[in-house]
Design a protein around this nucleic acid. Structure first.
Lengths: 335, 335
DNA sequence: TTGAAAGCGATACCAA
DNA sequence: TTGGTATCGCTTTCAA
């Protein structure tokens, strides 16, 4: 069996209270006693049981991370960033892939709370915000990453999706494109809506009419992007460029283009969003809007940890500026 | 505050012992009492505190998962598979990215044990097997995925790397390639060694001499693969094909080829390993050796859970057969 | 400077 | 069928 605080106390011939004090550096303990206890602890390779100490009201040093799907590179990269910053601060992270399913979100949150995690980071879509509202008002540490729910008083870190959509579209516009299609994730997701708004704004600034038929809504897999792009290519008048609302969809679009014999970027320009590792792997490499994932991960963790360690403060939304990464999937339109 | 078992007991005017019994379906409780307690539980939205119950010797229903890097698609896919099966069985998973660093491995294992996880799955490289040996003999539930440490009595699930290397090489050989280079991860990793053995065997079966200069060892990023491929391309006599020991390296090789003006597969055939999502994204799509990731994830979890729930049994190594997925990065050599 | 003891929220044994 | 109570490993208050 693992040694307990009692074993240490017995062998060091002190009380468990004393041992507890040296573990936590509290109270006044003589150097001599402290050394004695420390030695025994080392000898026994004693490690305090986190569960027991959490039961007395201390932290579990564990945070929950809700993501749509950890096998999606964008979210995997977020997870890594969260894990890294959490690690620096002494926290482990429990991952939960929700598939953007409210039922799973609810189940996971309930489970995590049964396990007394110190806080939860939400990177997943949540339809029914009530699920979050209740625990947020309850004062349970909660933070959002890459999701926006302005109606909720919750710390949030995200990229300015509007600007992102704007930058992507403007880039295309500047190249001379006028017929720019959009393949976007479900518009129930706030980030998708904002990216589309950015797109519209860019068009408007250029005095170009918004054409409903150029907008395709779908899920977020490569296959989805491909399917919608194919639909786009059915039209008599083809778009000369596509703004895809994430890299996965952009890749689907590129694959569809290839299947139709359209060359990227000669016949069709494609812009993605996220700048995941995938964007560097396609051929041509994908022009895309970069989210500062590492920075975002660090920030949410910091915000969350502040909630658990500091005085209540006003919740904040940190909006980071996305950056357009120009690679090889965009070019001037043909003739 | 969250309600406790005491709240339930008080409101239902029974003892906490009775409540505990209805929670766990133990003992004989009259239907009437049971209903009463159940109702109060529902009313209060009572959820037992997992920490407290774990303190009394029950499970935490949490498992640890050690991976080199969760942002690497191969491992992210493993994580998802583990999470899914874990979820079905009632377990949450704590992810730990180790960067294949023994110090981190040790730190994480210690941390996880302090938190009383019910078991740990290791998918990360571990140089000093002593780290694992001690806790394994101690009887702590442990299982390996995609890693082999035959000297250790630990449940293990992996693909037959030897066969994988053999299949990849044979495919190239069958196409007519004779000068087949290898870009592999550090040979301290067992899987890399075995894949290389498979390669040698395939050559031998065909009566082809093993040429040391065609073998390049490196780390596992795209950049590493590219760098080594570039070195390969310095030679007077170019290889006509490259077997890369994972998809990331294969992609690096493809990028190097492109940079050198070599067309894939016309001038150079490339085979990868893992069949991650990346393999479907490259252009041309990558021929690669598929690991049945989902199946592997399910198996390790099952093996691990067996250890915690069943009688001690002989440890087993489950060796799955990899499958060659032929896509478009391989072809007959030029003239 | 040290220790006795209550308490955290559950489980399980033993009585009633 | 139900309940009293010791126990798990630790923290913390209060006395000594």
């Amino acid at each position: 069996m693992k040694p307990t605080i009692y074993d240490v106390a017995r062998i060091a011939s002190v009380s468990i209270a004393t041992v507890s004090k040296v573990i936590n550096g509290k109270g006044n303990i003589s150097d001599k006693t402290r050394q004695k206890v420390l030695n025994v602890m080392k000898e026994l390779q004693y490690q305090p049981n986190v569960l027991a100490s959490a039961l007395t009201g201390k932290r579990t040093y564990t945070i929950g991370l809700l993501l749509p799907d950890i096998s999606n590179p964008f979210f995997a990269e977020i997870a890594r960033a969260v894990e890294d910053r959490g690690g620096e601060l002494g926290f482990n992270v429990m991952i939960c892939s929700t598939d953007n399913n409210d039922a799973k979100v609810e189940k996971y949150i309930s489970l995590l709370r049964q396990k007394s995690v110190d806080g939860i980071i939400i990177g997943t879509g949540v339809q029914d915000q009530e699920i979050l509202a209740s625990i947020a008002t309850e004062g349970f540490p909660l933070a959002l990453i890459a999701r926006d729910m302005p109606s909720l008083a919750v710390d949030t870190v995200l990229v300015d999706d509007f600007v992102g959509g704007y930058l992507a579209t403007k880039h295309l516009l500047d190249l001379g494109h006028r017929r720019i299609a959009v393949v976007t994730e479900n518009l129930k997701v706030s980030s998708s809506r904002d990216r589309l708004r950015g797109y519209r704004q860019a068009l408007e600034d250029k005095g170009i009419c918004y054409d409903e038929t150029l907008i395709k809504t779908t899920d977020f897999s490569i296959a989805d992007g491909k399917k919608k792009a194919l639909e786009l290519f059915e039209a008599e008048l083809l778009p000369t460029a596509v703004f895809a609302c994430n890299d996965l969809l952009a890749i689907g679009v590129m694959q569809a283009a290839k299947e139709r014999g359209l060359r990227v970027p000669a016949d069709l320009s494609v812009v993605g969003f996220d700048n995941t590792i995938l964007a560097t792997i396609t051929d041509p490499m994908l022009t895309t809007v970069a989210q500062p994932i590492e920075h975002m991960g660090k920030q949410v963790v910091d915000l969350l940890v502040q909630q658990m360690t500091q005085e209540p403060r006003t919740k904040q939304r940190v909006i980071l500026r996305p950056e357009l990464i120009i690679r090889n999937s965009t070019n001037v339109p043909k003739a």
